[in-house]
Amino acid sequence: MGHGRNVAEVPGIKRDDIDIEMSDRELRITGGYKERERAGVLRRSTRRTGHFEYQTLLPADVTPEEVSATLRDGILTVTVLKAQVTTSRHIEITEA
């Protein structure tokens, strides 16, 4: 596995309103659509509000340094880079 990619659509959400955490193998993305209020305006906003949460399990040998995220045009892309490709190798047996 060279790398994995998770994509989430988050239209209209700001980068500062998204939180990405990684603990052990679990990648957790949370965020909210926050209502932008203007002082003195009593009319109710039609802007979308709410909370979202997304969780996924990563391969066991992934470290936080290998995870990156980008937000462009309402699409959040989380990319997991793998430093080494898992291959089989011969293990020498040494004399005790």
Rank of each mutant, 00 (worst) to 15 (best):
R72T: 11
D19T: 11
K34W: 09
R15M: 03
G31I: 02
E53S: 10
S45Q: 07
D61C: 01
T56V: 10
A83Q: 12
R44K: 13
I13Q: 02
R43G: 10
D19Y: 14
A60I: 09
R47W: 09
E9R: 12
L27V: 09
Q84E: 13
I29W: 10
Q55D: 11
T46A: 15
K82S: 04
K34Q: 07
M22D: 06
T94D: 12
F52H: 06
I13S: 01
H90C: 04
T30W: 05
L57Q: 09
T46R: 15
V10T: 04
I18A: 04
G12E: 02
V10M: 02
T86W: 11
Y54I: 10
E92C: 03
A96T: 05
T77V: 06
Q84V: 05
A8E: 05
T49W: 08
T46I: 11
L76F: 15
I93V: 13
L81P: 00
R28Y: 08
E37P: 00
T70Q: 12
R48G: 03
E53W: 11
R48C: 01
P11N: 01
K82E: 08
L57P: 00
R15H: 02
R43K: 11
D19M: 10
R28W: 11
S45M: 05
R36V: 03
G32V: 01
T77P: 00
R43A: 13
A96E: 14
G74H: 04
E37M: 03
D61V: 00
H3M: 13
A69I: 01
H51W: 14
P59L: 09
G31H: 07
Q84M: 08
V78Y: 01
L81H: 13
G4M: 12
D17F: 07
I91D: 14
R28M: 06
E95S: 03
R47Q: 11
T70I: 04
T87F: 15
Y33P: 01
V41A: 11
I20R: 07
R43Y: 03
E65W: 07
L71W: 05
G32N: 09
T63I: 09
T70A: 14
E35S: 03
T30N: 11
L71C: 02
S45P: 03
A8P: 00
V85Y: 10
I93L: 14
A8M: 08
L42P: 02
L27K: 11
D73Q: 09
F52V: 01
D24I: 05
R47N: 07
T63D: 14
V41L: 11
E9L: 06
Q55A: 15
L76C: 02
S23W: 07
E53Y: 08
I20A: 12
D16S: 13
H51M: 09
E66Q: 15
D24H: 12
K82G: 04
S88D: 05
V41D: 12
I18E: 04
I75F: 00
K34L: 07
L76E: 04
Y54D: 05
A60N: 09
K82N: 06
E92R: 08
I91A: 13
S23V: 10
R47K: 14
H51G: 04
T86C: 07
V80H: 13
T94R: 14
A39W: 02
E92H: 05
I13N: 02
D61W: 12
P64V: 03
E92L: 10
F52C: 00
